[in-house]
């Protein structure tokens, strides 16, 4: 019964449930991205400050967040923080916190890269034209960094969407979990359901990320 598995997807509300499951992770990544963009911009500016303390602090933060697998960070937030401080964080709150911390670090590094890519003579020229600091920032720095940053930020969004799939491992009911429920419920009637359900989830993630990646690629090419 090779072709019977696919019909499971169209029974009852199964397909809708899968989409709802996908939305659970998409919502987390969306919130995390929206929070990390402003925080990351601030963090990036903080990193480029000449103050050695701010450099050291931001460096340690960035390196720690970067070197740890995101799943480890999730475990620390979900199991560790709950225990250490007695806070009762739900899985989705800890996921938003972790992915915001991670996104802030990554975004901050992108902002730092964009800021230091502006050669010094640009600042000198702006000063020679009599611009003050705010004008230099608004008319010289921001327009140039934006072109570099926007495609990279869009890419960060797809990375975020892909990484939030991990939340199933701290017990959230998202698309993979819903898929498993559907498979288990139909284990005896449709033994091949797993292939189709996981295949569709695969496709759904692709459809969520691919257009965003394409957009980033296009913008990157146009603004190079």
């Amino acid at each position: 019964m090779q072709d019977s598995g696919i019909s499971v997807l169209f029974m009852g509300k199964n397909f809708l449930r899968l989409l709802e499951g996908l939305w659970v992770t998409l919502r987390i990544s969306l919130i995390a991205v929206l929070l990390s963009i402003p925080l990351g911009i601030l963090f990036g500016m903080f990193m480029t400050m000449k103050n050695p303390v701010s450099r050291a602090v931001s460096r340690v933060y960035l390196e720690f967040i970067r070197i740890m697998p995101q799943l480890v960070l999730l475990f620390i937030a979900y199991f560790g923080v709950t225990r250490a401080f007695g806070w009762n964080l739900s899985a989705d709150v800890s996921a938003v916190i972790v992915f915001t911390l991670w996104g802030t670090a990554e975004m901050g590094d992108l902002v730092r890269g964009a800021l230091i890519s502006i050669p010094k003579h640009q600042y000198d020229s702006a000063a020679a034209l009599g611009m003050n600091k705010i004008q230099t920032f608004g008319y010289v720095v921001v327009p140039q960094t934006m072109r570099r940053l926007i495609p990279l930020t869009i890419n960060l969004t797809t990375r975020m969407i892909k990484t939030t799939s991990l939340v199933v491992l701290i017990g959230m009911t998202e698309v993979l979990k819903v898929g498993k429920q559907i498979i288990d419920a139909n284990r005896f009637d449709y033994p091949t359901a797993a292939l189709w359900v996981y295949g569709v989830i695969f496709l759904l993630y692709f459809l969520a990320c691919w257009p965003i990646s394409m957009l980033a690629k296009k913008l990157e090419k146009r603004w190079r």
Partner: peptide
């Protein structure tokens, strides 16, 4: 390349480990 870059590893693994045995 597009498929592999735009899907999470966890989903790829679930497909390989739970999906493929069905065929």
């Amino acid at each position: 390349i597009e498929i592999s870059r735009n899907t999470p590893l966890l989903v790829q693994l679930f497909f390989l480990y739970f999906g493929l045995p069905k065929i």
